[in-house]
Each structure stands twice: as C-alpha cells, then as structure tokens.
C-alpha cells in the first residue's frame, strides 16, 4: 500500500500500541485533536485513551527523563522530543542517564525507550528548529540512532525500535514527511545496522542517510543520463553503523562521496571518511569526498537555507570531481 512517512509512522504507533499495552506515547501535544505538529499521533488518544497517550507540559527534561524511568520499570515508552534542537534542554537525561543505565548498573537494567524527534532544514524554521544533530547522538556510546529515508523503512525501523530493549532515537526528517512509497502491510520489521542499497552501480558509491539518501538517489538518476553508474547506499541507522556495506560497495567502485546534512566538523560524513581511509585505503582510486552543510547555524532566510543544505547539483559536482581525479 502506498503511504507517506507521516502515515507510516502513525500506522506503526497504532499497530504497536495495539500489540503491546506496555507501549505508551508521551510528549507535547501528542494527545491534541491534530495529533501534534504533523499529525503523527492522530487517532491514538481516541483508540488507546489518555492514560496511554499522555500530553505533557513543555518540559523536555521531564519528558525524556520520565520516559527513561518508565522504561527502566517496565513500560515501553515512545517519547516525542518535538524538534531535535530541544536536545539542548534535556541532554543530561540522554547523555548521563539513559545512555549509561545498562553499563553502569552492570547489566541489570533494561531501558526500552524510543525518543522520536524531528530533524533537518528545508522548511524555513531557522537556527533553533532545523538542525540535524544526529552526529552528537551517535557519538554517545550505545545510543541507537535511526534515520529512515522512506515510508517503508520508517515503518520497519520504528517497529524494531519499539520492540528493542534498548534506547533508540528515531530521527524523522521534516522535509520527508509527505514522501510516499509502497509500504508492506501488517507486521514489518527491519534490523538495525543494515544499510540499504537504494541504487546499484559500479562507478562510484554515494553514501547518504535520511534526506541525503533521497538527494543521493536523485543525483544518481541524473548521473545515469550522463552514463555514470553510481551506487547509492542509504545507511538507515547511524549507530549501529553498517561498516561492511560501505566497504563492500567501495570494493566494487573504488570511489566514495558521502552526503550528510550535518555540519561538517565531527559529522557522519567525517566518520564515514575515517572508516574508508582506515579500513579501505587500498581500495580507493580517489580521495573520499564529503558533501555537507557548511559549518554555520541554519539560516531562516529561504534563499540562504537553500544554499545551506546539500543538493543534487553539489552531489553531482562532487561525483564528477571524484571521477576526474
């Protein structure tokens, strides 16, 4: 069935709440008539009641912390951090508390919590509502970071996230919510740490994640008109990371371009470049190239924001440069 990412997430929440009564949803506006900013939680309160779909005050530390505490004591909470930028007000509960429970408690603790959050630029929401920030999260040992690029993956990965016994941060790119594709009916799970080959090719590998996987696919399609067979790898999850898939694709193509909407310094693009140099140096026919946002905040101005995010033209230029090396 064809559906959007927004609909796929909504359907998954319905299915998982139906399946397991320990699953609860909490966050700001999640029980409102509109189902939150993008209608993600639409229909949940009517079906599952306000004791399982919990509207909270605007209180991110308490939302995330209480979700962690509830997970530690037997529920399977899906908390909503409306925009990932709000990590700024609740980071302690993720960084020092939830991320450490199992390790610092010597394996006693189980923390099946999912934090759903909106990431990314492209809607003119400016410096405090448009960031990516997933490299910051992936840098925390143990935190699982999931970045679906299409509706089918959103369903499969969110189902896995909710059933996972460990903390998962599920990053939803706000510019992708309305993108549609075929989504499997019924129960559908995708394993973490398994990248998706979005396009098969042999000339060059383009690595993307979340929205940049979509951009990479568009670039590959344009490049095929010019006779370039680019392979596109969508990482799907940043932690755990499918290092093997990147290296296997590199073995086939000998060239890598990484497209990442994060700021370049300490980005996923840097991490992939590091991986390729460290583990795949002998396979490289050209230096690995990164296409990222600049190292600046995200501007609100639409014309500057359009310059900020990686786009198809920049990916094509990077591919050409790498091929011409």
């Amino acid at each position: 069935m064809k559906m959007s990412i927004r609909e796929a997430i909504n359907q998954t929440l319905h299915q998982e709440m139906e399946r397991d009564e320990r699953v609860i949803v909490l966050g700001e506006d999640v029980a409102s008539d509109q189902g939150g900013v993008y209608g993600i939680t639409d229909g949940l309160p009517a079906k599952f009641g306000l004791h399982r779909v919990i509207d909270t005050p605007i209180t991110e530390s308490a939302i995330v912390g209480a979700a962690g505490g509830a997970a530690l004591t037997g529920l399977r909470p899906v908390a909503e951090l409306m925009f990932v930028d709000f990590l700024g007000v609740c980071l302690d509960q993720i960084l020092n508390q939830i991320a450490k429970f199992r390790y610092m408690f010597g394996g006693q603790a189980r923390t099946p919590v999912v934090i759903r959050t909106m990431i990314g630029a492209g809607t003119g929401t400016g410096p405090q509502h448009s960031q990516i920030l997933y490299p910051l999260l992936a840098a925390i040992p143990g935190i699982k970071v999931v970045t679906p690029a299409n509706a089918a993956d959103a369903k499969g990965l969110l189902t896995t996230a909710i059933r996972d016994d460990d903390p998962v941060i599920f990053c939803e790119h706000k510019a992708l919510y309305m993108d549609e594709c075929e989504v499997p009916e019924g129960e559908y799970l995708l394993p973490f740490g398994q990248a998706r080959t979005a396009v098969e090719g042999s000339d060059i590998t383009i690595v993307g994640m979340s929205r940049t996987a979509v951009i990479a696919e568009e670039a590959a399609s344009a490049l095929s008109q010019q006779g370039v067979n680019a392979e596109v790898l969508d990482l799907r999850t940043l932690s755990p990371l499918d290092e093997g898939a990147v290296l296997e694709s590199l073995a086939k193509t000998g060239r890598v371009v990484v497209v990442d909407e994060a700021n370049p310094y300490c980005s996923m693009a840097s991490e992939i470049a590091g991986l390729v140099v460290e583990r795949g140096f002998d396979l490289l026919d050209a230096p690995v190239k990164r296409v990222t946002s600049p190292h600046t905040p995200v501007p609100a101005t639409p014309c500057l924001e359009a310059e900020y995010v990686p786009n198809v033209e920049r990916v094509i230029a990077a591919v050409q440069e790498t091929l011409d090396y």
Binding site: G65, A66, D92
Partner: peptide, 25 residues
C-alpha cells in the same frame, strides 16, 4: 533502587517515570 546519581538533580525525572509506570499499571 534505581541508582545513586552523580548528576545533582538527575534522579527526579527518572523517579517520575517510575511513578508513571506505577500509575499506568
């Protein structure tokens, strides 16, 4: 016993979550 806490003020949100579990169940 949900943990000592080396972050001053780190525990109350976690205790609130445990209370939420008790209330929900």
């Amino acid at each position: 016993m949900l943990g000592a806490n080396a972050i001053v003020g780190g525990g109350p949100p976690i205790a609130a979550g445990a209370a939420l579990t008790a209330k929900t169940l």
